[in-house]
Amino acid sequence: MAHSKVIGKLSLTTALAALIAVLSSTAAQALVIDFEDNSIEPNHNEDVSKPITSQDFLFKPTLPPEQTQYALANNVFEAHNDSTYFIIRNLVDDKTLESFINPVILSKGDATPFSLVSFDLAEWGEPQDQAQTVEVVGFLAGGGSITKIISFDGITDGGGLLKDFQTVMFNQQWGNLSRVEFKGLEAPVSEELSEQPGFQVNSFAIDNIEVGEAFEEPQTEVPEPSSILGIFVLGAVGCGSSLTKKITQR
């Protein structure tokens, strides 16, 4: 009897271990672009005039650097997460109040498709220069595009207890991308036209961009990971109980 119980428990344990291994393998395929390979000291920021790379992904502007300013920063202004993050500043002409069409492009260094899972987003810069929304456009490897407009959560307490960065999640429609474009919008520019040429900006910070291998969007609904885990656990329990019963009968 004792022997049969041991075999039943081993069967359940083996099934659970196999399931965890499969789920862990899938998760391991994800990569987080955290910009720490372009590390900046705390309380500093550094303007960048050329495309940068991080974790073999490329970030570059669609217009010349003087019209798309970006930087690397660490705990500057009210955006604090104790790590290096990426700043995008989309310019607005003070005289005409017209925004340049100048998103920053994210693509894989070897130009192969990828999936976008999530990223962290925060307000950055002087209040009058902060973007109110961010437009994210994903260009599908097979043609076409998908767009997501993100509003900020309004939390900017710097080194306080609240999180300055909010996490934005993306669904399976963002699973087969050739590139992603980020653009800040709706900075509260002044209604008074400046007497001198100048610019105001739509600034924002991004960090911890989670990307993964490309995959085709499934045509049918797929159960959530928690549901799949439940199915495997129930199956494993059933198999273990059945095996135990058969051995006991013998």
Rank of each mutant, 00 (worst) to 15 (best):
Pro113Tyr: 10
Ile149Thr: 15
Pro188Trp: 01
Ala71Leu: 08
Val237Asp: 04
Val211His: 06
Ser107Ala: 10
Gln132His: 07
Lys163Phe: 02
Phe152Arg: 00
Val189Asp: 01
Ala27Asn: 08
Glu213Phe: 09
Thr156Gln: 15
Val76Asn: 07
Asp93Gly: 02
Ile20Trp: 13
Asp164His: 01
Ser83Ile: 11
Ala21Val: 15
Tyr85Asp: 15
Leu193Thr: 12
Thr68Trp: 05
Gln196His: 11
Lys60Ala: 13
Ser118Met: 02
Asp56Ile: 04
Glu41Trp: 06
Ser118His: 02
Met169Gln: 15
Asp82Gln: 13
Gln196Asn: 11
Pro218Val: 12
Ile105Gly: 05
Thr112Lys: 13
Asn171Ser: 14
Asp93Val: 03
Gly230Cys: 06
Ala236Asn: 04
Lys163Arg: 06
Ala187Trp: 00
Pro223Gly: 08
Ile7Leu: 03
Phe35Ile: 01
Ala17Gly: 15
Glu224Lys: 04
Glu192Ile: 15
Gln249Ala: 11
Pro51Leu: 01
Pro225Gly: 03
Lys183Cys: 10
Gln132Ala: 06
Asn171Gln: 08
Gly184Glu: 06
Phe86Ile: 03
Phe152Pro: 01
Arg179His: 11
Tyr70Leu: 07
Ala18Ile: 15
Leu58Thr: 14
Val168Met: 07
Ala30Asp: 09
Asp56Ala: 12
Gly212Phe: 12
Lys246Ser: 08
Ile105Phe: 05
Glu224Met: 06
Arg179Leu: 13
His80Asn: 11
Arg250Gly: 12
Ser242Ile: 09
Asp37Cys: 04
Leu161Arg: 05
Ala79Gly: 02
Thr156Pro: 04
Lys246Cys: 05
Ala122Leu: 02
Arg250Val: 11
Leu193Pro: 10
Val222Thr: 12
Ile105Ser: 09
Gln196Leu: 11
Phe199Asn: 12
Glu186Phe: 11
Pro61Ser: 02
Pro225Gln: 02
Ala21Cys: 14
Thr167Ala: 15
Gly175Cys: 03
Pro103Lys: 00
Ile155Pro: 00
Thr13Asn: 04
Ala28His: 12
Gln67Trp: 08
Val48Cys: 03
Gln69His: 06
Val104Thr: 10
Glu186Pro: 04
Ser190Gln: 05
Leu23Val: 14
Glu78Gln: 07
Glu78His: 09
Val180Trp: 03
Lys60Phe: 14
Ser241Met: 09
Phe114Val: 03
Phe119Val: 05
Asn171Gly: 13
Lys5Glu: 03
Gln132Asp: 05
Phe57Trp: 09
Ser39Pro: 03
Ser194Gly: 11
Lys95Pro: 07
Thr147Asn: 11
Ser54His: 01
Ser151Tyr: 08
Ala79Gln: 01
Trp124Tyr: 14
Val233Glu: 09
Asp94Ser: 14
Ser54Ile: 01
Lys183Leu: 15
Phe59Met: 02
Ala73Glu: 13
Pro188Met: 03
Trp124Met: 08
His80Phe: 13
Asn90Gln: 07
Asp37Ala: 07
Gly235Asp: 08
Glu186Asp: 14
Ser226Arg: 12
Gln55Lys: 07
Arg250Cys: 12
Gln172Asp: 13
Val211Gln: 09
Ser107Pro: 03
